[in-house]
């Protein structure tokens, strides 16, 4: 009796372990390996990461597909919620490659740089990237921040560019990512560059669903969306022009661990960048966001159409 109870205790612990680990039969359940490859990113293999918004996942799938087509072993760890998580993850080797944007990445590594056009930003970025990492060729595809308003509201106010908001902004609520509160890409920038002060700033997300919903439904008058976002056109929104280049260029660029980069990898990724432009990227993103297709399917389509995969 006594013994059987102890045995039962141990058996239960084991059973619970087994239940917990039931997903474990095929190796580590947390490594979402792609179909064509398995195991960890061993020598030569590349682990592709992405942020947790649709465009990032789509670009990561495109990179992954292009690499696989060149015989590179690929593991995917997509949808990492925060840049504060995936950049350290690159540095500690948890992932090796991630699609990024030149302007925002430059500012992440080194604040206070002033270039705004695509080449200047890219040059500054290259010199800001930590030694262990590197960026490959930038693509022509750009997805930058824009201050977006409802078209009806912009027309009513007679506003086409951010500069036109002068004298009107004090009655407007603006929404953007939380960092807008203190960054030059946000509230301080509007004041410094355009002399604008808003009635209220509402911390939402970086061009994400919260900002879109709040714009669509009028909880904010203006907000931060990204230029490739199909929701802008679909919801009768309009991106205000930025005549003073408050927003730096944001070209899509692969950020990769130096030790994992080799001519095959670079060749494959640079070929992708060469084929990507803003219109193409926006069209692909529309399939994911509006038509609710899966990023990997859309990526495959793009790759085969361009002879990359």
């Amino acid at each position: 009796m006594k013994l059987s109870r102890i045995t039962l205790t141990i058996a239960t612990a084991a059973a619970l372990m087994a239940t917990a680990a039931c997903g474990n039969s095929g190796g580590d359940p947390l490594a979402s390996t792609s179909s064509s490859s398995s195991g960890s990113a061993a020598a030569g293999g590349i682990t592709v990461g992405s942020a947790d918004f649709p465009e990032s996942a789509l670009l990561a799938e495109i990179y992954a597909g292009a690499l696989e087509a060149k015989g590179v072993k690929v593991t995917k760890k997509l949808n990492i919620g925060a840049r504060e998580a995936y950049i350290p993850a690159l540095q500690d080797g948890s992932i090796d490659l991630i699609p990024e944007y030149t302007g925002v990445l430059r500012d992440y590594f080194k604040k206070g740089q002033t270039g705004t056009d695509a080449d200047a930003v890219y040059t500054e970025l290259k010199s800001s990237v930590p030694a262990a990492l590197t960026v490959l060729d930038k693509s022509a595809a750009e997805d930058k921040d824009a201050l977006v308003m409802k078209k009806s509201r912009a027309d009513e106010l007679g506003v086409k560019s951010i500069a036109d908001l002068k004298g009107k902004s004090q009655d407007l609520t603006v929404g953007g990512p939380p960092e807008w509160k203190t960054r030059d890409t946000g509230i301080p920038g509007f004041k410094k560059i355009y002399g604008l002060e808003f009635k209220q700033f509402r911390p939402l997300d970086a061009g994400g669903p919260l900002t879109l919903q709040a714009l669509k439904n009028g909880q904010i008058d203006a907000g931060d969306l990204f230029t490739t976002d199909p929701s802008i056109a679909e919801n009768d929104l309009v991106a205000l022009e930025d005549p003073k280049n408050m927003y730096a260029a944001q070209n899509v660029v692969p950020l990769i661990t130096k030790s994992k980069s080799n001519p095959t990898v670079e060749g494959a990724l640079n070929a992708v960048s060469a084929k990507l432009d803003t219109t193409t990227l926006a069209a692909l993103l529309k399939e994911v966001v509006s038509d609710k297709k899966d990023p990997d399917a859309v990526a495959k389509e793009f790759l085969s159409k361009n002879g990359l995969g």
Partner: peptide, 23 residues
Amino acid sequence: ATIIGIPQLGLFFSDGFSRDFYD
């Protein structure tokens, strides 16, 4: 755990949210 990139069911939340997609 999505915030630190660990895959689990929570990924469906951010996916649905960012695509305005209830499914």
